[in-house]
Design a binder for these strands. Sequence first.
DNA 1: TATGAATGAGAGTTCATTCAT
DNA 2: AATGAATGAACTCTCATTCAT
Lengths: 172, 172, 172, 172
Amino acid sequence: MQFAIHGFHKTKISEIVKEANVTQPTFYLYFKSKEAVFQELVDVFKEKLYHHVAQSKLPADVAEEGLMERIAYGLRAVFELFQQNEEVARIGFVVSEEATTIKAEMTAQIESNLTEEARLGYFHTNVNFSVVAAAMVGAIEYLAITKLWTGSHTPDELAEEITQLFLHGLKI
Amino acid sequence: MQFAIHGFHKTKISEIVKEANVTQPTFYLYFKSKEAVFQELVDVFKEKLYHHVAQSKLPADVAEEGLMERIAYGLRAVFELFQQNEEVARIGFVVSEEATTIKAEMTAQIESNLTEEARLGYFHTNVNFSVVAAAMVGAIEYLAITKLWTGSHTPDELAEEITQLFLHGLKI
Amino acid sequence: MQFAIHGFHKTKISEIVKEANVTQPTFYLYFKSKEAVFQELVDVFKEKLYHHVAQSKLPADVAEEGLMERIAYGLRAVFELFQQNEEVARIGFVVSEEATTIKAEMTAQIESNLTEEARLGYFHTNVNFSVVAAAMVGAIEYLAITKLWTGSHTPDELAEEITQLFLHGLKI
Amino acid sequence: MQFAIHGFHKTKISEIVKEANVTQPTFYLYFKSKEAVFQELVDVFKEKLYHHVAQSKLPADVAEEGLMERIAYGLRAVFELFQQNEEVARIGFVVSEEATTIKAEMTAQIESNLTEEARLGYFHTNVNFSVVAAAMVGAIEYLAITKLWTGSHTPDELAEEITQLFLHGLKI
DNA sequence: TATGAATGAGAGTTCATTCAT
DNA sequence: AATGAATGAACTCTCATTCAT
């Protein structure tokens, strides 16, 4: 879908319909307007994303040994969502105007998760979780763009690496 | 500058010149085209950024105790560059088409730095530095947008938090 | 019928067929084109109108006392035609392009009637019957629109009032 | 002006600008939209019309002998307005959607004038002034179209004839 | 007889860009 | 150095009309 590649403004109806081998009026047979079809895509993605993030919150009884795996699991799910819905994810997370809002919402959710998880004793508390959450969201976005959607890394690999990094850091 | 706020396509020459209190033809006395002026801004930023990142590479003789501070120093410099050149940074790092390339270049530079630094023994080596570098760039971008340019955090605070996170992780 | 309400241009085939609970191609099974069906409606009305107006001419032997009633009779017939065929009358007399021609034809007929009637001694001759005829047609049209089709007045009432006005005037 | 001839929907920007020997974008240099320029014309006319009609109300002290002249005077003024502003009058009184409202307003004003004048003893009161007012407005409109704007009659002649007709009627 | 699906032609509008002065 | 006035090219969207079935 052209929107995912070019964003809203550079995407022309004429190109969309050419790709689909139909004429312009046909587009309006199926969609109310350029804006409407774009928004629909955004909404579909938003729905899915929020659902995934909400589910990635750690439960109360994760054992010390299983912690890392459990975190990686949540991240992997997000990366898989991004992989299986690349176009719609690109639109909703990167190119749409609403992407800002969507990422802000995701950040807030992650911050809330982290805070709760810290209270459960999983993490230490001398960090600003709002900053950490934003760092995670930024990292996820950019990794999706450069490592996932390029095909160079799998969701599994990325989740693994990121978990390792955010859990233990680089320091020996 | 309108470009920083609205991006290339939504920014109209008519708005630019209105803001500058001149007429449209005057614009073309000073710039070859809409595209050219935009490119000029991008180039200015690119130059500065690459310079800063290159300088943030750790030297060979940092003492154990000073490591963290030295890393924070490099990050702080980048955030300060972003703060002092918000508009041009927004354009070159976020809204321009070339932003992709610029961030890729920065990522490569950071990866190279990390690899070298690991070889110097600062970090352990069982992580994929290409992934870590991308995570850092993504984090930096999103923190700039949500924490720096909103005025909620200073370059210093952000550098501090990020260093802490990337060095030691969240785990207790 | 949509034409009567919205006129030719604002009436869409898509609306017509929706109202009739058929699809667009079905329309073209029954009518050659949008224009053709409109024209058909106009023709139907034109036929009826000319017939009525021709019949409203006063015969030669109307008694002094019956004159007013005889005139009112003709007018009433026209208003009744308009009332019983509101849609088609609206189209043929108001919204169609041909309405101009139709009203011109009606005006000419009335003028001819008046001239003849004046020669029979019913009216005085120091007025321009072409102007009077046009005034009548204009009055009839606007009264149909504002008093008849709104339901506020009956054909009878309108015929009565108009006859009184055109026969004796307002002056005491 | 094309609007006066063809009405709003059949008038194309492309025709307007062709008539003016400029290109389509030039149109938008001077007018906000097709709709806006049309509305502006309507408003200009409305203003003028209401002013004239309001002024045509008879004062309290018209002498018996001067009555007819005084009435003709008011009508003449309206026809002169129509003549001197043919295009805008056509638009505001005939082809615009608002024409309905404008004529209704004018009718109401005339009815009010007539009622008042009858109370002053100028006219007898056994007629429905609402119907008479509508008849007048309809007559005025159609006479403007067929006798004034065709050039066949002057405002003076039309005012004279109409006054005679509405004051004394056709009856000998 | 009826239609789901499609379209050619053209509407109004916007915008970066350029003359003539 | 500066501009008022204009435009080419392109855009989104609409609508009467027609296939293939």
